[in-house]
């Protein structure tokens, strides 16, 4: 693997240089939040951030996106265009947990049968650059419990690690290597590697929040009807914030919009927390209350995804923990399940 060293203050300049050629999604400070947004000509990336308020999944799986367009004819509405397209782009500076989420979403959207054209096109045309967490950004970070690490490259094409005076640049994939020219000529030596490994080990130790994410799988296999499921949802507002903030939540709705003679079929994020999500035309709803919806969300992450893809659908970013307006904590839910 090709490795380089760059000066720490060079990062913003590199992002801007790339933005002359590609669409660059970078962390942008907006009031009190940092969000991944396209870097504008006069814009300034903000790399001194902990993590972005929202998960960067919207780069590959937008909150709302057009699937196709259609138009009115004398014989009815007919298809007019496939809206699947994506410009060559760079997602610059995501945290390793969020890069990990892309590897997890790939398992679902890029299956052998039924490939999701819209997600895959964006994913193929985007190079992901991660910045390692030398220190855990938040006390609620628990990536090490869900097969992640603060210094890890899974899901990323390039990994940047702050090793003191410099960033160590690891061009992890062929897609990452194609951007080598932006990272100067300074080859990294063995000392830089050693330093990075020390930092990585310390960073793992610094993650204090731990959950028994693997241990609960066999318990979930047997406890669909456990009365425990009555104890989580009492205060849940069904606002769906946890699912919208989650880097791995991928449920969506498809709907049509018509204006005059033309229309568009769009997909938009949906949430298993919403009563309408599974409500059928007949009025029947297999997940009749918030209890069943919470069970679904928990099971989907820690059992169903494991059954189907041999991976837990959680990256330990802690966004749901920090954003829940009534302080329901998935870490406590998992902890409680482990004691059943």
């Amino acid at each position: 693997m090709e490795k380089r060293l760059i000066k720490k203050d060079a990062l913003a300049g590199i992002a801007k240089k790339m933005a002359e050629e590609f669409l660059v999604w970078a962390p942008i400070k907006k009031e009190d939040n940092v969000l991944f947004e396209p870097l504008q000509k006069d814009g300034e990336p903000f790399f001194a951030y902990l993590n972005s308020k929202n998960a960067p999944k919207n780069v590959f799986f937008p909150h709302t996106e057009a699937l196709m367009k259609f138009t009115r004819t004398e014989k009815g509405m007919v298809f007019s265009s496939d809206e699947n397209k994506a410009d060559s782009s760079v997602l610059f500076g995501v945290r390793p947990c969020d890069a990990h989420s892309f590897a997890l979403l790939d398992k679902l959207f890029d299956q052998e049968k039924y490939q999701d054209a819209y997600y895959i096109t964006k994913r193929q045309n985007t190079t992901v650059i991660s910045i390692a967490c030398v220190k855990p950004p938040y006390a609620s970070c628990f990536c090490t419990s869900v097969d992640g690490a603060p210094v890890a490259s899974e899901g990323a094409d390039i990994l940047l690690t702050d090793i003191g005076s410099d960033y160590l640049v690891e061009l992890v994939t062929p897609k990452g290597e194609k951007l080598a020219k932006y990272f100067g000529d300074a080859k990294a030596d063995a000392a830089a590697d050693t330093k990075k490994n020390e930092i990585a080990a310390k960073a793992i130790e610094a993650i204090k929040s731990k959950i028994p994410a693997h241990e609960v799988k066999p318990i979930l296999d047997k406890n669909f009807d456990n009365p425990f499921w009555n104890t989580i949802h009492g205060k849940c507002l069904a606002c769906g914030t946890c699912t919208y903030m989650c880097p791995t939540c991928h449920c969506f709705d498809i709907s049509d919009e018509v204006k005059g003679g033309d229309g568009v079929r769009i997909r938009s994020w949906d949430s298993c927390m919403f009563p309408m999500f599974t409500k059928e035309t007949s009025g029947h709803n297999p997940r009749v209350s918030q209890k069943e919806r919470w069970r679904q969300r928990t099971m989907h992450k820690f059992k169903y995804y494991v059954d189907n893809f041999n991976a837990i659908a959680c990256v330990g970013c802690g966004r749901c923990v920090m954003s829940c307006p009534v302080n329901i904590d998935i870490r406590k839910v998992v902890e409680d399940i482990s004691k059943l």
């Binding site: 679902l108 959207f109 299956q111 049968k113 039924y114 999701d116 669909f224 991928h250 449920c251 969506f252 709705d253 498809i254 997909r267 949906d270 298993c272 999500f277 599974t278 409500k279 059928e280 035309t281 297999p286 679904q296 099971m299 989907h300 059992k303 169903y304 059954d307 189907n308």
Partner: peptide
């Protein structure tokens, strides 16, 4: 079985019964 469906190809996440998607 019947369930509410959207995508029909096991992505949109609403028709699962346990780990299985009714659509797929």
């Amino acid at each position: 079985l019947e369930m509410r469906m959207k995508c029909g190809i096991g992505k949109c996440g609403r028709c699962n019964v346990g780990s299985k998607y009714v659509c797929k």
